[in-house]
């Protein structure tokens, strides 16, 4: 078998598992499990970036793979773990409305994402161009997760998963953005994450829970 063919196959496999993890996240109720899934998603992302770096020989991609490993596989899940332990919400479970419907909507989103990705894939010259549709699908699914959840922590995990999808889109369409931009994005993400962490405590102090359905004061009357 041709080596580049092998690489493409493995990349497709990784992309597929990324999509699977996204679907799994949609259906998980417990916060603890969601964090584990998020860490797995980061790991798959790291592996695929590393593989693309290896096959394209671009040094910048090695750096961004390292950044992914540090930030999304180690740092963020670890901080999230500590946060939910300190907040005591690790075994919180949400009553999700109708998982099958959510799954069906998710399926529709995936089809839509693939349709949308068509012109982009045709234009990209990377070996990963087939996976742009999956990247878009991951973004949309994370978005769906943010809409359907009512807990602050889960919404944030959805937000982070969306960022994973964006990062995957950048690597598969263009071999990643210029390094300075990527560092800037990572920095913004990290700061944003810390702010949200502080928010958790403030919200709990004010509302006695992290359930966002308590937040209904500011509606238009």
């Amino acid at each position: 078998m041709h080596p580049s063919y092998m690489v493409t196959e493995v990349l497709n496999l990784l992309a597929a598992s990324l999509l699977l993890i996204s679907f799994a996240m949609l259906s998980r109720r417990r916060t603890q499990r969601l964090i584990t899934l998020f860490a797995w998603q980061g790991l798959v992302l790291f592996a695929s970036t590393l593989l693309v770096a290896y096959s394209s020989g671009l040094r910048e991609l090695y750096y961004s793979a390292a950044l992914t490993l540090l930030l999304k596989v180690i740092a963020l899940p670890w901080i999230l773990q500590r946060l939910i332990h300190r907040l005591g919400v690790q075994w919180d479970s949400e009553t999700l409305v109708n998982i099958p419907t959510t799954m069906l909507v998710g399926l529709g989103l995936v089809i839509f994402a693939f349709g949308l990705a068509q012109p982009i894939s045709r234009m990209a010259t990377t070996i990963t161009r087939n996976t742009i549709g999956i990247a878009l699908a991951v973004i949309f699914l994370a978005f769906l997760m943010m809409i359907t959840r009512r807990k602050a922590v889960t919404q944030v995990i959805g937000f982070l998963a969306m960022e994973n999808g964006l990062f995957f889109a950048a690597t598969s369409a263009t071999y990643g953005m210029p390094m300075v931009i990527e560092l800037g994005i990572a920095l913004d993400l990290l700061i944003g994450f810390f702010i949200l962490g502080i928010f958790f405590f403030q919200i709990r102090e004010q509302f006695d829970s992290l359930d966002l359905s308590n937040m209904e004061a500011l509606k238009e009357d």
Binding site: M146, Q155, F159, L196, Q202, Q206, L212, M215, L218
Partner: peptide
């Protein structure tokens, strides 16, 4: 101000 309303506004703004 860390009031309920301001936290809600900030959360909405952020998300």
């Amino acid at each position: 101000y860390r009031t309920r309303a301001s936290l809600e506004a900030a959360w909405k703004y952020f998300i």
